[in-house]
Design a protein around this nucleic acid. Structure first.
Lengths: 208, 208
DNA sequence: GTCTATATCCAGATAGAC
DNA sequence: GTCTATCTGGATATAGAC
């Protein structure tokens, strides 16, 4: 009981750093498990084991399994935003969109892309009430939506498609199961697979 | 105890018909639930309630939840085979492939297309050991694979893509979540949605 | 905040009468 | 084969000591 002898601010800051690092470790594990097996198949026990802490400790950081998953979804959206900021402003809108999809595919093949929550899951209901998630999603969507419209005006992307359809398509290709199936066949390199799926996405299956 | 007075064969046949009809009703319910919520979120209680029988009765017909789902997957593959047989032999390979994808998208928007089992699910392991499923899958894949190669030779489908990548892409588009998202936005007709997604699949996002 | 141990619930599967 | 009632395992979540 001698708080005066131990300066508070640095110690608190250190504790906070530890806390943040611990939470980052948790969210990273959740992210990997979501990518591997999806929300329903992931168990909180696995998360605890992966992080190396007790399950009860997890619940001190996140109040529910859904919140764990939401944190991972927010993280990947923030990673996406960070990546978008690295794109040279001199790139065309189409080039930026392609770069984003390519990056997302690399993330997926690295086993770090949580799959899209299906429309009727308990996770989705929770996400729709999560402010941090919605905010990040809107920010990324606005950024991409602007590029899509610009690309359509510039005659780079087919203007007959509504922008929202293009946006959904890009999101869906970022989680495309085709990548995993081709990777599982074990006969092709990751970069080869990405080139093909990126090709089918922007060029289509038809011959030129 | 007077079997001689009640001719057996017609009665057995009638019972068998009832049995088959009951099982068809079960599989149909399973199919709808798989389309709505996926394998993990679907419960056997829901299936029983949907069919209107007791859960224990379900297990007299199918030994496990995985087998229920497998029966639904086999059913959709058989429906696919039946549809492929209706395609005019005079159609080009590309036309047949497009017709198949369009049909699958219609099935999905009607809420009757079970989603692809994710790669690490318990369902997938079970399916890989299910002869009826594998046989139907191989038959459909062979049929489509032949058309894909023919279309590539005819210069209709881009020959730089391996046929297996094209096949996976067609399967994935048949279950594409983009359809559901666009339908959920409620602003477009089903046929409009199908035209767009079919367009992105074969023509790509790029402007011509 | 971290742990062990436990509560609680729910879903898959089964027992046993009819 | 169909039912009611039950078993069982496993998963989310919590209690309570430290």
């Amino acid at each position: 009981m001698k708080p005066a002898l131990t300066p508070k601010s640095p110690k608190v800051s250190f504790k906070q750093q530890m806390l943040q690092a611990r939470e980052e470790a948790i969210v990273q594990t959740v992210n990997r498990l979501l990518a591997e097996k999806g929300f329903e198949a992931m168990t909180v026990d696995e998360v605890a084991a992966g992080v190396g802490i007790a399950k009860a400790s997890l619940y001190k950081h996140f109040p529910s399994k859904e919140d764990l998953a939401a944190a991972a979804m927010v993280r990947v959206l923030h990673r996406t935003q960070a990546f978008l900021l690295t794109l040279p402003p001199t790139d065309t809108p189409l080039a930026k969109l392609k770069a984003m999809v390519r990056w997302a595919m690399e993330v997926q093949l690295a086993g770090e892309m949580p799959s899209l929550p299906s429309q009727n899951s308990s996770l989705r209901a929770n996400l729709m009430g999560n402010q941090a998630y919605l905010e990040a999603l809107v920010q990324v969507s606005d950024q991409l939506g602007g590029w899509i419209q610009a690309a359509q005006k510039a005659g780079q992307i087919n203007p007959q498609f509504p922008a929202i359809a293009v946006l959904y398509t890009l999101y869906a290709r970022a989680c495309d199961p085709v990548l995993g199936f081709l990777q599982a066949s074990g006969q092709h390199s990751d970069s080869q697979i990405i080139d093909w799926v990126l090709g089918t996405c922007f060029e289509g299956l038809n011959a030129r």
